[in-house]
């Protein structure tokens, strides 16, 4: 059960890192003072992921195109292995993200990673989404009925 919870949180960190604007991530990483010590095990390398939709929205899957994806894996001197995957071709973003994934597995660093990197990114992403939702909501049609004739 605890392992599932760990996976869920690690997955959430992956989601934040994948969605992170590359420049902001690089800046937070630089300013965090966290050790940049991961040795690259794989990549950073760019490849394709075939994207699937579902017929009618919820039916059988079908392939409808591809996207560029960049991934990296690193190993810390203390042995933790970190991975990263994100849409696009930003190799530095993948390398930094893999380091962050490795560091957050170390109890000594988990809190700093959360406070200095994942927290600010999460807030930024949430603000962007909320802003967008609010702008879109203003274009929702409010129907009203015209009363015609007598009575």
């Amino acid at each position: 059960m605890r392992e599932d919870d760990g996976s869920r949180r690690r997955r959430e960190a992956f989601a934040v890192l994948a969605a992170a604007p590359a420049e902001m991530l690089a800046r937070l990483w630089r300013e965090s003072g966290l050790p940049d010590e991961g040795a690259l095990l794989r990549g950073p390398e760019t490849g394709l992921v075939a994207l699937r939709g579902r017929i009618g929205g919820g039916g059988s899957p079908f392939n409808f195109g591809e996207a560029t994806v960049t991934r990296a894996s690193v190993k810390l001197p203390s042995g933790e292995i970190g991975h990263a995957y994100a849409l696009g071709r930003d190799r530095e973003k993948a390398r930094i993200s893999a380091n962050i994934d490795a560091l957050r597995q170390k109890p000594d660093f988990a809190a700093a990673v959360e406070e200095k990197i994942l927290g600010p990114l999460r807030r930024e992403l949430q603000e962007r989404d909320e802003q967008r939702r609010a702008e879109i909501a203003a274009t929702r049609v409010e129907f009203f009925t015209m009363v015609r004739g007598e009575d």
Binding site: R52, R54, T139
Partner: peptide, 20 residues
């Protein structure tokens, strides 16, 4: 020119962040 990493899970358009 690029290698293929795999096939994604099918997208869920019901969970879309809708713009229109």
């Amino acid at each position: 020119t690029l290698p293929r990493f795999g096939y994604s899970r099918p997208i869920d358009t019901a969970k879309m962040l809708v713009e229109r």
